[in-house]
Amino acid sequence: MVKEKNIPINKPILFLSNHQNALIDALLIAATSGRFSYFLTRASVFKKPLVSKLLHSVNMLPVYRVRDGWSTLSKNNYIFKTCTDKLKTNQAVAIFPEGNHHINRTVRPLSKGFTRIIFETLSSYPDLDLQLVPIGLNYKEGTTFGDSVALYYGSPISAKSLVSQFSNEEIIALRQTIKNQIKGLTTHIDHAVYDKTIAKLKALNVDYLNPIAVNRCIESNFETCETAPKQTVNWMKRFFKGLLILNLLGPFIIWKYAIKPKIEEVEFIATFRFALAITLVPFWIVLHGVIIALNFGIFYLATYLVSTFIVALLSVKL
């Protein structure tokens, strides 16, 4: 589900989103924003050469933090200059200004990195009509297979309307303005009462794909809430999911016993599952397809491929 609000096509854009689900967040924005974007992400995920090449191939740029070592911070000069160069040619850059990811439904304090990009861009090109577009990512669960997600794109904000003196006061105001915008586009639960609030929302069975309604529920002290009846067990969905697992038994065993147990942060579960789905799963299906074609012919191959597609679709959509 995507809710868009007039994303400019021929203007420079800085997308500013909350960050809950590692690489999946960036992929969703890339697939739905309608703009070819460059993404800034934490440098620590670029450590392995193969991963680094993969991330650079999908327009990911590393941002270095103090925890990466003081000596690495100077590398950000090149990264931010790269962002300015992209924006001056009316391209799009996406950043997760919270500075890290977390599965919790809380908009965390924003770092100064995105304000530096804005300041450096406008100081170099004061007439540039840089647009700031806040984004709210809303997952139904966040880690489960067949999950649902809603993206809400806020109304574009002219950066020039918020910056004139390039002062520390404007940095503070920028951070607060964007944080408030993102909080309106995704469920925001205060950290101090997080567990208690989540328990109440779970009991009410709210729809996290509708963050405006959920935030209204929280702000009303749970008096004005849109609730839905708890869903019964969908046996048809379980049946087709079972068929899908049987068909993809090899990748499933590798995922369940070799990959998933080694994932230390839950925010990476969906990312690694997606990586498996676009690498090992196609190989597994092709291997089965070749065996079927050689032994039974093209008709049975076509039947197998169509059946696999239908079973996969039903296991997610039912």
Rank of each mutant, 00 (worst) to 15 (best):
V2T: 14
I7S: 05
N10W: 09
L14C: 01
H19G: 05
N21W: 00
A30G: 13
F36P: 00
V45T: 10
K48G: 03
K53E: 04
S57L: 09
T84K: 11
T84C: 03
L87E: 05
T89L: 13
Q91I: 02
Q91C: 04
Q91Y: 03
A94Q: 09
H101V: 06
V107P: 02
S111C: 12
K112E: 05
L122E: 03
V133H: 07
P134Q: 06
F145E: 10
D147C: 00
Y152V: 10
Y153K: 00
G154K: 01
S158W: 00
N168H: 11
I178E: 06
K179P: 02
I182A: 04
L185Y: 06
I189A: 02
T197L: 03
T197A: 04
L201C: 02
L209N: 05
L209G: 09
S220R: 10
N221K: 14
N221Q: 13
E226L: 14
T232F: 11
K237I: 02
F240T: 02
K241R: 15
L244H: 11
L248H: 12
W255V: 08
E265D: 15
E267T: 11
A277W: 11
I278M: 06
T279L: 04
I285N: 07
L287P: 01
L294F: 13
N295H: 12
Y304R: 03
L313D: 13
V316W: 08
